[in-house]
């Protein structure tokens, strides 16, 4: 028997493969190219706008000049507020699901609901936040209402990361601790959580990125169109970067004149995402190196 019997079939098989692989490769690089174009376009156009004044001054002249300081401060407030809410509850909830709850309908129900919450569109969170926090609780358009709304949005993300980080920890550590007479909570807090911490923190950082860019949930719960002063309490309205970008690029007093402001704002938003991703990647690598050393 000779290997060259089906030379022509073999050749066409090879050809099909190399054509297919080339197409896939090109399409994959197209995806990368899209990202590079978007990032490049905004970073190049935005970079020239960025200056100390842009970052630290109030908007001026119908938001066609000046800076975006109040929007930066507003976004920081909202991120801090929402994380203050979502992080503890999310981590505790993740601990409950992975460490405490027994298999059964209740656990299944909670997991199903968490999944569903993760799938609800952000505008629906906006509606809900408006109905409950702004109107029913009477918080009005405020940092409080906006942070709670954003916090609910981030909750499933935090829960899932916590759950996954805990799941990755081998059972033997828990059993070892329990066998020494540690209680469940001692085991969780002294052995399991410290081990899961790096992954949890990475997830937290990524959800900060997500929250800082969300617009729809804050439209009706906190965001101010133009408010050239800083908040003094959690019941104040604030400007926020994503909403500011939306406003000045679609409905500002003079869209053309505020275009450069818009590029600058988009630049800052992208910068936040880049920093958050780099930080998360760096942490991941840092901690995994540490584990390897052990």
């Amino acid at each position: 028997m000779s290997f060259s019997q089906n030379q022509s079939i073999n050749n066409s098989k090879r050809l099909a493969q190399s054509v297919a692989f080339t197409i896939f490769k090109l399409l994959s690089f197209l995806v990368v190219a899209i990202l590079i174009v978007i990032l490049g376009f905004i970073l190049v156009n935005g970079a020239s706008v960025i200056s100390w004044e842009f970052l630290t001054e109030m908007p001026k002249e119908g938001m066609t000049a000046g800076g975006i300081f109040p929007a930066i401060v507003g976004t920081l407030c909202l991120v801090a507020g929402s994380m203050l809410f979502a992080f503890p509850i999310g981590v505790l909830s993740g601990i409950y699901i992975n460490e405490y709850s027994k298999d059964g309908w209740f656990k299944r129900f909670i997991k199903l609901m968490t999944n569903n919450l993760a799938g609800i569109p952000s505008i629906v969170f906006g509606l809900f936040g408006m109905a409950l926090f702004v109107n029913r609780f009477g918080f009005g358009d405020s940092i409080l209402a906006g942070s709670l709304t954003l916090g609910l949005l981030a909750l499933p993300v935090v829960i899932r990361t916590t759950e996954e980080s805990l799941k990755a920890i081998d059972k033997s550590f828990r059993i070892g601790s329990l066998a020494l007479g540690a209680t469940k909570w001692q085991t969780t807090s002294r052995v399991v959580l410290p081990m899961a911490f790096p992954n949890i923190i990475t997830g937290l950082i990524l959800s900060v990125g997500r929250v800082s860019g969300e617009t729809a949930p804050i439209l009706f719960t906190v965001a101010a169109y133009f408010l050239p002063k800083l908040p003094t309490s959690i019941f104040d309205q604030v400007m926020a970067l994503p909403y500011h970008l939306y406003v000045i690029s679609t409905s500002g007093t003079n869209i053309e004149a505020s275009r450069s402001m818009a590029y600058g704002t988009a630049f800052i938003l992208i910068l936040i995402v880049l920093i958050v991703n780099l930080l998360a990647n760096w942490l991941r690598r840092y901690f995994s190196k540490k584990v390897k050393m052990q």
Partner: peptide
């Protein structure tokens, strides 16, 4: 009161 040692060593990190 009743200590236990496991098949695979499982020290804490």
């Amino acid at each position: 009161h009743v200590g236990m040692v496991f098949q695979k060593p499982n020290p804490f990190p």
